[in-house]
Design a protein around this nucleic acid. Structure first.
Lengths: 216, 216
DNA sequence: GCGACTGGTAGTAATATTTCGATTTATGTT
DNA sequence: AACATAAATCGAAATATTACTACCAGTCGC
């Protein structure tokens, strides 16, 4: 008898995952949660054998979420399921303590493999990620990191506001700093992210946009 | 006995939809397709009673897809299921001949309602969209169709270049006009599209973008 | 032929942004 | 304590964009 908690802000995706998990783990019960805090509460109320976690749920900053859930139940198996760039995020999540990383574009066969592996206390990453990590290793390159990892907290804050389409003036007012300050931050963000214009920046962080697109 | 075709590039989302549809329509068979052409082929091979269609699948231009499927089977019920801006896209899709529009963030209850309505040959849109359309109507505004319909050819050309992130200067050189001219066009585009900044503009035309998010 | 309208084009002044370099503050090291 | 470093801030000049207005060439209806 196993209990599985699925945290995903897309209910239909959660149901898809549940449907797949049911075929892998017999005799299982499920809780579906649709926000970060809802998920935390659910885990606090009932320990889970498996936590399937969407990275991109609103009000969170991605991989850091893993820590929060581990803090509630230290030994929970965590399978991150994200639509964000796999090559970038899988290593980050595993490094942060996840047991597996499953891309949302994966076919159900891969989902089955991932769930099975994690339930057997093994780590799971896709072959694609394994290969990439291996070839990075052989070329002596450091592991792929979050593109925003090199940004300072303040820069990330400005990044978020820039992606809402706000003007520098509005951002400056919101943050209570001078416009020139925001200009400098924007400049540094562009340089660090190796982009030249706001459109390319937005594309790099398209996955953050999906949430906002709903209430245009 | 009903046959249902689900076209979505996220297999797990497709499974979620299937799982929900199963509870609504008894005695149903399913085909899941993961690309636009796969979907077309599947429909050509076996007529469907219901087509659940994701708008954002790669290699397509959004709502126009509806025409392609109707060309294969004129009387198929089409329920569009998209994660993008509902207020804008739902009217467009229905105007183009879809039978319903379901947002991907909807809860399963709404999905059930939507599927049931469409299967009963009724139209389905969310209350949110209904309200918005109604208030538009009362204010005498026309129903939203193609957002770019009101743009002139030249404006569309500039729009395309703007969405690649090019600066006015580069666009002006490319089109062999003065920067001020491009500035004017941009201004008119912004006004017509009722946006204030390039990010919101890009969001309005998300379906022109190749699905960059997944392979960044 | 004559307004009225549309599409494409610019000029200009007001605003916004980029791009420097420089200062301040906090933190960690020796 | 002295020093180095990273983060955040800001001023000012150089550029770029926006918000106007205006002009001209077609086109349509009459």
């Amino acid at each position: 008898m196993h209990h599985i908690l699925i945290v995903d802000d897309h209910p239909m995706m959660a149901i898809g995952l549940q449907s797949i998990a049911k075929t892998v783990i017999e005799n299982s019960t499920f809780t579906l949660a649709y926000t970060f805090t809802e998920g935390l509460d659910a885990l606090a109320k009932q320990p889970a054998d498996l936590l399937i976690l969407d990275l991109a749920i609103p009000g969170t900053r991605g991989p850091e979420m893993i820590d929060s859930y581990r803090a509630v139940q230290q030994d929970v198996r965590i399978l991150v399921c994200s639509g964000r760039d796999e090559l970038m995020n899988a290593p980050i999540c595993l490094h942060r303590g996840a047991n597996g990383f499953l891309h949302k574009n994966s076919f159900d066969g891969e989902a089955v493999t991932a769930i099975r592996a994690v339930m057997e206390n093994k780590k799971y990453i896709s072959t694609k990620v394994k290969d990439a990590m291996l070839s990075n290793l052989m070329e002596g390159k450091a592991m792929q990191t979050d593109p925003a990892a090199s940004l300072t907290p303040r820069e990330r804050e400005v990044l978020g506001l820039l992606l809402t389409g706000k003007w520098l003036k509005a951002i400056a007012e919101e943050l209570n700093v001078k416009i020139s300050t925001v200009g400098t931050q924007k400049n540094r963000i562009f340089k660090k992210m190796k982009v030249d214009n706001i459109i390319d920046l937005a594309k790099k962080f398209w996955y953050l946009e999906e949430k906002t697109a709903d209430h245009l």
